[in-house]
């Protein structure tokens, strides 16, 4: 919507700076600022300022007794030695290593199935698989939380009806898998859509050429479709990595149902939240958030580098 208006405006101003560039370089650069000024102001206010403020906070420590004081890098040193922080990080890494490949694989299979054109009611499938993504994560977690109930929930009903003995999905051993299940359910549709849209822009001529060469459907997938959507796969992988590191909604909601399975430091985000809102350790919480942000950036960048190198 907004993208439609800037180009004409930019075009209109271009001749002027071009002419006067040498004479009055300074003035022309200011007119540029005029256009991006409103954006920069909002950007600085809502994006840069909070980050700067977090960094500022992370150099202080405010105690209930003794007040506020500058502590330099002490908070960072504490994070690096904080076993609760590392255990939460290891937990999301484990989550990432198992849940993301499973989710992307299923999403890929669904996208390929839809793209193959051999399904009846294609749009129905597409919508119904995408639908969970439209359900807010909070609602989804509550819903699954009820279903996981072993007494009055779906699991309880199944156990009663079939005489089976499904263990409680909310006990400490299974909770991570249960959360993985919710997240997978939520995001398959989203990733499927990324893959599907990438698949649908592959030129039909490639398929025709392959058909002339007598390629099988399987060959079509491995030789044309998969290489063509590598970019989309990298994007989906990066989103998923970031999403896993920021895991918060699902454990936060399920915590009230399974308080002993989900500790206050279950994921790094939950840890930062508890530190800040129950512990009033805003400074330490900001430090945790910054360290986590840096780790996420490094890993997302590594995934991107690796994905792109393969492409080239």
């Amino acid at each position: 919507m907004t993208t439609a208006s800037p180009p004409p405006a930019a075009l209109g101003t271009q001749p002027k700076p071009a002419k006067r560039a040498q004479k009055r370089g300074q003035k022309s650069s200011w007119s540029g600022w005029l256009f991006i000024g409103p954006f920069m102001a909002v950007f600085a206010l809502v994006f840069l300022a909070p980050i700067a403020y977090s960094i500022y906070l992370s150099f202080f420590r405010n105690q209930l007794v003794g007040g506020n004081g500058f502590v330099g890098l002490a908070n960072y040193a504490q994070v690096l030695q904080d076993s609760q922080f590392w255990s939460s990080l290891i937990r999301v890494v484990l989550f990432l290593a198992v849940q993301v490949p499973v989710m992307l694989l299923i999403a890929m299979l669904v996208a390929l199935a839809l793209d193959s054109g051999r399904l009846y009611g294609k749009s129905f499938f597409r919508i119904s698989i995408f639908l969970p993504y439209a359900v807010p994560a909070v609602v989804a977690s509550l819903m699954w939380g009820f279903m996981y109930g072993t007494r009055f929930g779906l699991v309880g009903n199944i156990n009663e009806a079939l005489g089976t003995n499904i263990p409680n999905p909310l006990n400490p051993d299974l909770i991570l898998a249960s959360i993985g299940n919710i997240v997978t359910w939520e995001f398959i549709g989203y990733n499927m859509l990324i893959f599907y849209s990438a698949l649908s822009v592959i030129p039909k001529s490639l398929y025709e050429a392959a058909e002339i060469d007598g390629a099988s459907q399987f060959r079509l997938v491995t030789a044309i479709k998969l290489p063509a959507i590598r970019g989309a796969m990298v994007v989906a992988a990066i989103f998923s990595v970031i999403g896993s590191f920021q895991l918060f909604n699902e454990p936060a909601i399920l915590q009230s149902l399974a308080p002993n399975s989900i500790s206050t430091y279950f994921t790094p985000n939950l840890y930062a939240y508890s530190l800040s809102f129950s512990g009033q350790q805003y400074n330490y919480s900001a430090t945790v958030a910054i360290v986590m942000g840096i780790i996420t950036m490094v890993i997302a960048y590594a995934v991107q580098l690796r994905g792109m190198r393969k492409e080239g």
């Binding site: 909070p50 980050i51 977090s54 909070v138 918060f248 936060a252 939240y273 800040s276 009033q280 805003y282």
Partner: peptide, 22 residues
């Protein structure tokens, strides 16, 4: 618990500076 439900606002963490001054 109720407030735990209402939250979902992890991003506001850094915006809540300062505790009780002494």
């Amino acid at each position: 618990r109720g407030s735990a439900l209402a939250l979902a606002a992890a991003l506001t963490l850094s915006a809540c500076g300062g505790g009780g001054g002494n």
